[in-house]
Amino acid sequence: MTDDPFVVHRRLLFTVAYEMLGSAADAEDVLQESWLRWADVDRTKVADPRAYLVRTVTRQSLNRLRTLARSREEYVGEWLPEPLLTSPDVAEDVELAESVSMAVLTVLETLGPTERAVFVLREVFDLPYGEIAEVTGKSPAAVRQIAHRARSHVAARRPRVPVSAAEQRAVVERFLTALRTGRVQELMAVMAPDVVLVADGGGVVRAARAPLHGADPVAKLLARAHLAVADLVTRTVWLNGAPAGLVEVDGEPTAVSLVVDGGRITRIYVVRNPGKLTRLHSPVDLAR
């Protein structure tokens, strides 16, 4: 039924689950579990289906986060969120685009499950403290305190000044051009001196297992990688609400998201784990 509230709000529910989990695959599992619960509900007793479904998805996401904690602790190398191909329309909602950016999702990984739920529901979806309290099992006063702590934590670690899509795209294209040449100086010219590269190969494919700091070592690493590649194809795409790079290395995809400040790259997120690159063929619908 197209008028079923679950179907009507599915984009919103997926976005909630994805921001909670940083994984589209896990978000889809949560939506499936939530749908099964929704199917058994007496709809006549649900006054606000949207709020009810958001609460259900959040609870299932919290359960999933706690289940995933051990596997993420044992993950080989750095764990990065699963990149999503998105349409340019997502960027029109600046707050939504920022909240699903690789940079912010990576910061959210440093929050505990309850802190993450409170931050996402309050800062991104603007739910009342009372509703968040019901979801998390905390008092409204405690939720306010958690929200304040989480907000401060994220603000201290997120990119300082968001840039326009046009500026982001220009820097992405400069970076991809330099990447195709493999020349250290050209790569360094587009990076800030204190640039950080974080790569996720999941122990499945080759990738740096610890963050790399500084324009010189990052540029030299990328230049060495270029020499080892027989075929390198790059293109600019929209990932997680912003222009980014999709790089095919000998036919295998790699997603590259950049943080830009003052026209130069301050952070590079490289996702090579093939298990996280299955949603790069058609845009994923996100909504608030």
Rank of each mutant, 00 (worst) to 15 (best):
D3L: 06
V8W: 02
R10D: 05
R10Q: 13
R10V: 05
R11F: 02
L13D: 12
V16S: 04
Y18T: 06
Y18M: 01
E19V: 02
M20D: 12
G22N: 01
G22S: 03
A24Y: 13
A27T: 10
A27E: 11
D29Y: 05
D29K: 06
L31K: 07
E33D: 15
E33Q: 14
W35T: 12
L36R: 10
D40E: 15
V41N: 09
D42T: 10
K45E: 15
K45L: 14
K45T: 14
V46G: 13
Y52I: 01
V54R: 12
T56L: 15
S61V: 09
L62F: 08
N63G: 13
L65F: 09
L68H: 01
R72W: 14
E73Y: 09
Y75H: 15
P81L: 06
E82I: 03
P83W: 05
P83H: 07
P83C: 09
P83R: 02
P83G: 10
P88D: 11
D89C: 01
V90Y: 07
D93P: 10
E95A: 15
L96S: 11
A97L: 04
L105S: 08
L108D: 12
E109L: 13
T110G: 12
G112H: 08
T114E: 15
R116N: 06
R116E: 12
A117T: 09
A117D: 12
A117I: 07
A117M: 11
V118G: 11
V118W: 06
F119H: 15
R122Q: 13
V124F: 06
V124I: 04
D126I: 00
L127G: 04
G130Y: 03
E131G: 04
I132Y: 08
A133M: 06
E134A: 08
V135M: 11
K138D: 14
P140V: 04
I146S: 07
R149E: 15
A150C: 08
V154K: 07
A155H: 08
A156Y: 07
R157V: 05
P159H: 05
V161K: 11
V161T: 13
E167P: 00
A170W: 06
F175Y: 15
T177H: 10
R180G: 00
R183S: 12
L187P: 02
A189P: 03
M191E: 04
A192T: 06
P193V: 05
D194N: 14
V195H: 03
L197S: 12
G203Q: 09
G203D: 07
R209V: 14
A210N: 10
P211H: 10
H213Y: 15
D216Q: 14
K220E: 13
A228P: 04
A228H: 10
R235F: 02
V237F: 03
N240I: 00
G241H: 04
A242P: 00
A242S: 13
L246A: 03
G251D: 03
E252Q: 09
P253M: 01
P253R: 01
P253S: 04
A255H: 02
V256Q: 05
S257W: 00
V259K: 01
G262K: 00
G263P: 05
G263V: 00
I265M: 01
Y269R: 00
Y269P: 02
Y269D: 10
P274Y: 00
P274C: 00
P274V: 02
G275C: 00
G275E: 07
T278L: 09
R279G: 00
R279W: 09
H281G: 03
H281L: 08
V284K: 08
D285G: 02
D285P: 00
R288N: 02
